[in-house]
């Protein structure tokens, strides 16, 4: 099954590059992660801090009446890789319909050619994030 166009484009952007430049592109995504919308600034989840936690990353998924999904995320500046993952997903999933998001293959992170540049272990962080995003979509659409 084909990926939604915007995810396909992100994938192509990465795969066109050599290993070193893929890391640089991930950094660009990281820098592009928009700040959380005002309405989430005082969200209680943001106060949770897990002892010895790897980059705490928080995602907020919204589903509109038109069943269009938007995702917002925040992660600390000291965690640029995690921010990069979140930014890819925010850009890649935002604007898709609920069904399109749920159909995104769970191994989409493996398609970006990043395993060598950042290690397969770290890529799991992005897989987990995609899983969390989908779970939130399911929760918000379960009626």
């Amino acid at each position: 099954m084909a990926l939604p166009t915007q995810l396909e484009q992100i994938k192509d952007e990465f795969l066109e590059l050599g290993q070193r430049d893929r890391l640089q592109l991930l950094l660009e995504f990281s820098n592009e992660l928009p700040p959380l919308p005002e309405r989430y600034h005082d969200h209680p989840d943001l106060l949770e801090r897990v002892e010895e936690c790897q980059a705490p990353v928080f995602i907020f998924v919204e589903v509109g009446d038109d069943r269009v999904v938007h995702m917002y995320a925040t992660a600390p500046a000291e965690a640029p890789t995690t921010r990069g993952f979140a930014s890819i997903l925010a850009q890649g999933l935002g604007g898709l319909t609920v069904d399109e998001v749920l159909d995104v293959p769970d191994d989409f992170p493996q398609m970006l050619g990043l395993a060598q540049a950042i290690s397969p272990l770290r890529l799991r962080g992005m897989t987990a994030l995609l899983g969390r995003a989908k779970r939130q979509v399911r929760q918000k659409t379960a009626a």
Binding site: L23, L26, L27, A77, E78, A117
Partner: peptide
């Protein structure tokens, strides 16, 4: 820990 932190 973070593979991109040096780059920042």
């Amino acid at each position: 820990e973070d593979v991109l932190l040096y780059e920042t």
